[in-house]
Amino acid sequence: MNHGPLLFLGVLCCVVASWLGLVVGPHFQFGNQDLVLIEETGASYPSARDGLALQGAEIYRANGCNYCHTQQVRGASEGADIARGWGKRRTVARDYLRDRPVMLGNHRFGPDLANLGARQYTTNDLYLKLYNARLLHPRSVMPRYPYLFEERPLRPGAAPSSDALQFPEGSAAPANVEVIPKADALALVAYLQSLKSDAVFFEVFPPPQPAAATNGLSGVDTNAPALGDQTNAAPAAGAGATSTP
């Protein structure tokens, strides 16, 4: 250990080995994964985002949303993510093929967003959360993003424009102003609504349903319709799993 070059080579080998094993090897192993063709729709998954949603991804990145929100759903055996309704299945590598950068996130100070677009939020709800999350959830720690909105003074008695945010009954809506989302907010919400990791393909088929596994063929006396039902039911279940609910 008195020789600088040996020390250097040893450490270099250690770093390079880990780099090859953790980054380069996996790149050559699954860096060329294909998009999935969804047969029902003929579309490929993950689907390409439109221009507005791509701009929204830039807003998401620039404001560091990924420091509080993850975009990954753990399997049912590893956490309550699916039970919480954050997704119907776990997320896998193929879900992120089009993301650049991939913003998986490491902290859940806010809820997971991997399937936000598939969840029941109206556009107005999302705007309200961005404008002031505490209007919907008192004591929420989500920051306000007032700079994504324009507050226009409203003449007394005048109705707000159709683009303006609709505040829920009883919330502390700002008085005498109408709140209009700026272009950044439009893009960000378009991106959020494009977040869906719900297509089903090879790696992520759900475990077989217990109901489908039972069969009526326990004895010779089984009547014919039971057999017929089964033949019909099985492909239907497969097709149902492949379609996007």
Partner: peptide
Amino acid sequence: CLAVWYPLRGVLQAAAQAW
């Protein structure tokens, strides 16, 4: 290089970042 400048595809960026 691998996570930002010439990013690898998909989650490999996250692998490079974690490494």
